[in-house]
Design a protein around this nucleic acid. Sequence first.
DNA 1: AGAAGGACCAGTGGTCCGTA
DNA 2: AGAAGGACCAGTGGTCCGTA
Lengths: 279, 279
Amino acid sequence: GLNHALDALSQEGLSEEPVQQEREAAASGGEANNDDGRAKQRRSTKKSKAKKKSRKKNKKKKRSSPEAEAEEEEEEEEEDGWGTGGSEEGSERSVVERQREHPFIVTEPGEVARAKKNGLDYLFHLYEQCRHFLLQVQSLAKERGDKCPTKVTNQVFRYAKKVGASYINKPKMRHYVHCYALHCLDEEASNALRRAYKERGENVGAWRQACYKPLVAISARHGWDIDAVFNAHPRLSIWYVPTKLRQLCHLARSNAAAASTSVLGATSSDGLPPPPPMF
Amino acid sequence: GLNHALDALSQEGLSEEPVQQEREAAASGGEANNDDGRAKQRRSTKKSKAKKKSRKKNKKKKRSSPEAEAEEEEEEEEEDGWGTGGSEEGSERSVVERQREHPFIVTEPGEVARAKKNGLDYLFHLYEQCRHFLLQVQSLAKERGDKCPTKVTNQVFRYAKKVGASYINKPKMRHYVHCYALHCLDEEASNALRRAYKERGENVGAWRQACYKPLVAISARHGWDIDAVFNAHPRLSIWYVPTKLRQLCHLARSNAAAASTSVLGATSSDGLPPPPPMF
DNA sequence: AGAAGGACCAGTGGTCCGTA
DNA sequence: AGAAGGACCAGTGGTCCGTA
C-alpha cells in the first residue's frame, strides 16, 4: 500500500517551515471568505473574547479514548523525512523546521512532477491511501464490535497519522475531493482537463475550480442528485460530498428549472422540478 | 432548552396537573392519531410563559452558548404556541409546574394505560412519529439542496420540538430503541414478552432489559451483525444501533466463538469466528 | 424506589486564516 | 501571488445525573 514509488516521490522533498514556538490568538480579523467558501460561516465575534484558546501548542494532544492504545500494525513509521526520527532536533538552525508537502502542480496523466512539486497522480493516490486506511479502520471496528464508519472520518485521518502517513490531513483531502470525484467518474474528461490546464500553464487552483463544471453536468444527468452519483461509485462513496459542489448542483438545478419553467410554464410540487433538463 | 413546560401539553396526558385553561386552535403539526384510542386535545399553550431559567444550581460548568438562540436560526419557522417569547423570570412557579410525560408501564398489545401512565403501544407510536419527522426533514433538505440525513439525528429532534411534539426527546427515544427494534423485527416475540412481563407485574425497566436477549438471538442468526439487521428493516434502519445492544451482540459472539473453539479447536483469521454457532 | 429528560461533554464535520 | 494544514468552532451523538 504505502510503499509505492509515488510515496518515495512525495518523501523526496518536503517543504519546510519553522515551527512556531509560541502562538497567540491576537490577530482577530474580519471575515474573509475565500473564493471557495461560498457557504456563510458564522464565526461569531471571535474578537470579543480572543482568549480561552491557544491552549494547545502541542499539536499532538493526548487522547484518552479507549481507542488510544490502538494497534499499529503495518506501515512503518520510518523513512518519512520528518525530522529523521527525532522530534526536537533542530539540525541546522536554531528552530525546528516544520515540514509541509510540496505544493501540487497541474500534471498530465503519468507525468512526474519535479523540483519540489507534487503531481496530480500523486494527489489521487492519496485518496486511494485513505480508502485503504478506512478499510483498516473498518475491519478493526468490526473486530472489536465498535461502530463501523462508512466514510472517511476524523478517525481515519487519525489512523493515517498514527500509521505514519502524516502527509495526509483532513483539510487537504477535503479540498480536492471533487477533483478526485471527476477522476473517478469520468477519467477521460479528467485527463483532458489536466492536459488543457497544464498546456495553458494554469495553476492548481484554477484547475481545481474547473473540475466543478463537468461534475455538475454529470449530476444533471442523474436527476441533479450528486449524493446518488457519489454513492453509486465504490471508490467515491466513502467521501462526503463537498459543500460547494452540492451547492453548485442545487443552483444549477434551480436555474435549469427556472429556464424550463419559463418555457414550459410548469413546475412540480416541490417548486423545483427535479427532472433533468437539457437533452 | 428554552421553555418546554406548557407546550408539552399534547398527546398523552402529562404528569403534573396544573395547566393553563386556555387553548385555542393553533393547529400546527399534523397529528397522526395514536393507537391507544384516547381522545386527546393536543394543543400547545400560548398564554403561559413559565420560564424557569436556571432553576438548578449549576453544579457543573455553565455552557457557554445559550442554545436558545440556535433555536430560531431555522427558517420555515412555524408559529405555534411557543409562548410570547418572554424570557424573563416567571416569578411564581406555584402554578406552573414542570411537566413531563407520564411514565410508561408494561401493557399488552392494544391495552390502554390509565391513571397517568402511558402504554407501550404509545411508546412505539412515538418512533413512528419520529420517522415521520425525519421524512419531513429529508424532503426539506432535498428541496434546499442541503445534506440529507438518513438517520434520526439531533436535527430531527429539533424539528419535532419546533413542530410542537415536545413530548419527543432524544434521551427517551434512544433509551427504548431496542425495544422498538424487537417490535419491528419479531412482533410475535415482542407481544409475548409484553404479556409475560405484564402478568408478572414487572416494571418498565425490567421489560426493557428483557428486550435485549431476543435481539441478540436474532443477530446471531445473521452472523452477529446487528447493524445489518437494523439496516435491513425499513422502519428500523433510520435508528442508530444502541451501544449496549451492539456490545451485547459482540460479547455473545465472543462467547459463542470461544465455546465452539473449545470444541472444534479452530478459529478464523480475525480471532473471532463470525459464522454463527449453535445449529 | 422507578423514570423522564435537561443539559453536559468528548469527539465530528467543516474550513478559516495565520503561515511560509 | 498561490498553497498547505494547524487549529478553531458550531453543532452531533451519546447518556449522566439532578429532578420529581
